[in-house]
Structures are given as C-alpha cells and as structure tokens.
C-alpha cells in the first residue's frame, strides 16, 4: 500500500493505526494531531449530509441524524471529489439501518430530498409553451415526449409528500389527517425553483414509461394496466401545467 492510500485509510478508520512514517512535533507520535484531522473529515462530511437532508434531520432530530450520518460516512466515503454528488446512497443505507426502523418513512423522505437536490442542480431547460404543445396535438398518437432533465419521480408506500411538507414548514403540531395511502411525487425545476407535486394513481408509471422513451399510447397503456383508475387527461394536463415537457417528436 502506498503512503497516500495508507493515509486515507487511517483517516476514515478511527481504529486504524496512524501510519508510522507520520511524525508529530519534535519527532514524536502524531496520534493526537491525526485525530484532529480525522475528526475534521468526519465533521465536514456529516455537515454535508445534514445540509442535503434538512427535513429528514428535522424529523429524527439533529443528534440522531448526525450519529447515523457518521456511520454512513465511515461505510461510504465520497467516491467523487465533487461533494454535490455525495449522499445518493444514504437513503438506502437508512432503509436498512435498524435504529431507524421506528421511522419507516424516513428513507422515502430522504429519497424525496435527494430528488430535490438533483433537480436543483440539474441542467436548465425551457418547457414547451402551450402553442408548441397544441401544434403537436393532432399527431399525439405517434409522439414520444422529451421530459425536463430535472424531472425526478419518488414513489412511496407512505404519504411522503405530506410528511415532507409538514416537516419542512415546522407543521408537526398542526392538526392534520395523514393520508392512509402512499404518495408518489413528481420533483421538477421548470425554472428557478424546485417544485414537488403529488401524482395521481398511475401517474408515476405513465411518466416513467415516457422517460423510458415510450410513445403516448404505450405509456398510457402501461399506466392503465397498473392502475385501473388511471386518468390520461389529468396526467397529461399535470405534465403540461408543471412545465415537464421540453420536447416532442415522432418516435423512431
């Protein structure tokens, strides 16, 4: 193992010995100073995660969230120098983290926050104006849609959008009836601000199919196969209204 790899390993593993070629002041051991370095690495990465998942951190409290994040950092250090990309696997980790099982919706709230983060930093694109949509209308049966690059879907067995909204505005004490059903979310940044919307039954299957390149009739067929109550008009109107459509064309 070369020096750099040994140094990196010792940084992330508190049990690991400090490489013996590192000298402290006056040629003595470097244990204490290396621990300061180690702690700074952890603290900065935990800060990154706490900043990336602010609503989730509120839901379980800062102490629990940071302790959980610290374990994740130890297991999954960043694999890119770009910290914007750090944290994509955190929700999956939390889903399998036993101490978090009393909060079963936490992982989905984190997936929603990760989608929000991805949408925020995705490429800009101009939604098609209504006139352009109208011009394509007569050929709709042969068309595939190009959806906005910021578009993300989050599907949940829990009312994840409602939970996220309430926690985000500190509304935990508001009298509210949580929906018994799960919610699917559409996350999109049509202009400067990220928007989170609830999708109707079958909406997520429909949009996923379109994202995969299906034509409108194919996507509609998949959605109504999965949800008998799928409403094509409402789902199309939702896509148009939210600015999710940035291009249309005949499928190859």
């Amino acid at each position: 193992m070369d020096n750099e790899a040994a140094f990196a390993r010792a940084l992330l593993d508190a049990e690991a010995a400090v490489p013996e070629w590192i000298e402290g002041r006056d040629g003595g051991g470097a244990e204490r100073r290396f621990s300061v370095y180690r702690n700074n690495v952890y603290a900065s990465l935990v800060d990154v995660l706490a900043g990336r998942f602010p609503v989730s951190a509120k839901l379980v409290g800062d102490v629990f969230f940071r302790a959980m994040a610290r374990i994740y950092v130890a297991k999954t250090p960043p694999d890119s120098a770009v910290l914007l990309r750090y944290g994509g696997g955190f929700a999956d980790f939390v889903a399998g983290f036993p101490p978090a099982t009393p909060v079963p919706y936490l992982a989905d709230v984190m997936r929603l926050e990760w989608a929000w983060h991805g949408a925020y930093h995705s490429a800009d694109a101009e939604p098609l104006p209504q006139e352009a949509l109208a011009a394509f209308g007569p050929r709709a049966e042969r068309l595939a849609l190009t959806l906005h690059p910021s578009l993300r879907l989050v599907r949940s067995d829990y009312p994840v959008v409602t939970i996220w909204e309430l926690a985000a505005r500190d509304g935990e004490d508001e009298p509210v009836r949580l929906p018994a059903e799960g919610e699917d979310a559409l996350v999109l940044r049509p202009a400067l601000e990220v928007e989170v919307r609830r999708l109707p039954e079958g909406g997520a299957v429909f949009i996923q199919a379109l994202q995969d390149g299906a034509t409108l009739p194919e996507a509609a067929a998949r959605a109504s196969s999965s949800s008998p109550t799928f409403d094509l008009v409402a789902s199309l109107a939702g896509l148009m209204r939210s600015g999710a459509i940035v291009g249309m064309g005949e499928s190859a």
Binding site: G137, L232, L236
Partner: peptide, 28 residues
Amino acid sequence: TYQTKTISGVAVVSAFAAALSIVAFAAP
C-alpha cells in the same frame, strides 16, 4: 393472466386536446 390494455390513437389525440384545454383554461 396479465393483460395489457391498449389505448387507441384516437383516444390519445382527444385526451391530449382535452388536457391542453384544461391547462389553457386554468393558466394564470
């Protein structure tokens, strides 16, 4: 048995037009 429903092209064209009119009507 798993049955995939099919949606006719005509239905899609009319749904598209209906969706557009909803959006145009509701647009601020």
